[in-house]
Write a protein that binds this DNA or RNA. Structure first.
Lengths: 113, 113
DNA sequence: CCGGAGGTTCGAAGGTGCTCGTACCTCGTC
DNA sequence: GACGAGGTACGAGCACCTTCGAACCTCCGG
């Protein structure tokens, strides 16, 4: 568990379970967030910048799930919080998973016309 | 929904949802079954041939979940039931998903010595 | 015909997940 | 200093998931 300034605790990659990850990705809201983060190519993003149609307490819940599933790293900076995908670490442990899921989720978004 | 003799009803691939699939694969028992079926390379298998340490009514439940998630086709043959992975159909709709999940699940099972 | 193996259905218990509102906290701004 | 935006913590409601046992069904083999 890292304890950096403002960094919320996250599990080590070795402790992350595939079942937990798949559960986390099963929710449409969370999957949308992950896909969005991947499109941003590793960039950090404000949690408030995601257009999720849910109450803020529910959003907090989803961020925790994503964090505890090992998918994201979350930073607490003053008045806002920011997230970043744990892209490289995650890919090392679950090779191809993010790409496949994102590929499927994105399929149909960019119609070949 | 197909209605073949002995064939239990399954959803059309077009109606299968990624979230439902990921939920189905999140359970260790069901994931183990899927991985096992993949190792069998498309072969049909008796439902009773899986060494699941759970009650038979629970097994029935898991088969239904896998069926309704579009992962397997189930056949009712007299005194037993048989399952087959919907490999090709599934791969067409969710390219790479089965391979990636199976790859991850299997990782570490066959140590490179 | 009788028994057992394999399955389904039903109901129930216990746990978990998603959702929300409310209360509270912490910054940055005015 | 007061206010609002962004977040967390907590509790509650509701639905669903996993599990089981008991009752029942259908075959196949003796």
């Amino acid at each position: 568990m890292s304890s950096m300034p403002g960094e919320l605790p996250i599990p080590e990659m070795a402790d992350v379970d595939l079942g937990t990850v798949l559960s986390a990705l099963a929710d449409p809201h969370r999957r949308a967030v992950v896909v969005d983060l991947m499109a941003g190519d590793g960039a950090e993003r404000a949690c408030s910048s995601f257009p999720l149609p849910i109450a803020k307490s529910t959003r907090t819940h989803h961020w925790r799930v994503l964090r505890e599933a090992g998918l994201v790293r979350q930073r607490d900076a003053g008045n806002g919080t920011f997230v970043r995908l744990r892209r490289d670490e995650f890919d090392a442990k679950f090779p191809g998973l993010l790409d496949v899921v994102a590929g499927i989720s994105t399929a149909g978004s960019a119609p070949a016309r």
